[in-house]
Simulated scan of single mutants.
Amino acid sequence: MKRKILALLDGHRIMTIATLRPDGWPQATTVGYVNEGLTLWFLCGLESQKARNLARDDRVSITIDHDTPDIMSITGLSMAARAHRVTDRAEAQKVLRMMPLKYPDASAATAQMKMPAPEEIALFRVVPEVFSVLDYTKGFAHTDLVTC
């Protein structure tokens, strides 16, 4: 199952992340991510709602999937995780170097785009606690739960 999770993480580059707003309602947002094994990183604006939400509560729910014309070929995963603000400059620089590599098919203009400096963004390391692996090829709404 770990191999399937890694294939899904490695094969995608955007995710939907839900954080908790101050009023208790979840806020779901699409963000790009990079991963190294089961650890994911994403960045957002310093004063973004996501960054403010995560400063209060580090719990997140995440989905990673893709659109398909055949309902019975839906695959993807969701996870319960904790998102920790990255404060180590070396880790931040490493992740910022990884980001453009996730987009090898980007246009030349995008490829030349300057990545922000670590102090210009809020960078989060996502540590999964539970995965739910969705695989309709095994039956309608089939899921496997995996605890980390």
Rank of each mutant, 00 (worst) to 15 (best):
D10V: 01
G24M: 04
A7H: 06
R21A: 10
P118E: 08
I121D: 05
G32H: 05
A7M: 02
V86S: 08
D105H: 13
R125Q: 13
E120N: 09
W41P: 01
G32C: 05
P118Q: 09
T16E: 07
D65T: 12
S132Y: 14
P116A: 04
P116W: 02
K94S: 11
Y103I: 12
Y103L: 10
I5K: 00
N53D: 15
T137F: 07
A28I: 08
L54V: 04
I5A: 00
V34S: 01
L96H: 08
P26V: 01
F42D: 07
S48E: 00
L123Q: 07
K138R: 13
I14N: 08
A83Y: 01
A117Q: 08
M98V: 04
A108F: 11
A81Q: 08
S48L: 01
T87V: 05
R59K: 13
P69K: 02
Q93W: 09
T19H: 00
D88I: 13
I121V: 15
W41T: 02
A111T: 15
T87H: 12
A55R: 05
D135A: 13
L8W: 00
F124A: 12
D23C: 09
R89Y: 11
G11D: 00
L38C: 06
R97T: 10
M15P: 04
A7F: 02
R56K: 10
N53V: 03
M79F: 05
L38S: 08
M15S: 00
D105M: 09
K50E: 06
T75D: 11
D105C: 11
I14Y: 05
V130S: 14
L54R: 01
P118M: 13
R82M: 03
F131T: 08
C44L: 08
V60E: 02
S48D: 02
R97D: 09
A117T: 14
Q49V: 13
F124V: 15
S48C: 02
M1T: 09
A51P: 07
E119P: 12
S48V: 01
A106N: 11
P104E: 06
E129N: 13
Y103C: 06
H12C: 01
V60I: 14
K94H: 09
H84V: 06
Q49M: 06
V130Q: 15
Y136V: 15
A90H: 09
K4N: 04
T39D: 14
G37A: 03
A108S: 12
V95G: 12
L40F: 12
P26L: 00
R89K: 13
P100H: 03
L9C: 03
Q49G: 15
D144P: 13
L20K: 07
S107K: 05
D105T: 05
P26R: 02
H12D: 01
F124I: 10
L43Y: 09
I71W: 15
G45R: 04
L9K: 04
M1R: 04
I62L: 11
D23S: 07
V31G: 04
E119I: 05
I74A: 13
T63V: 14
F124G: 10
S48Q: 01
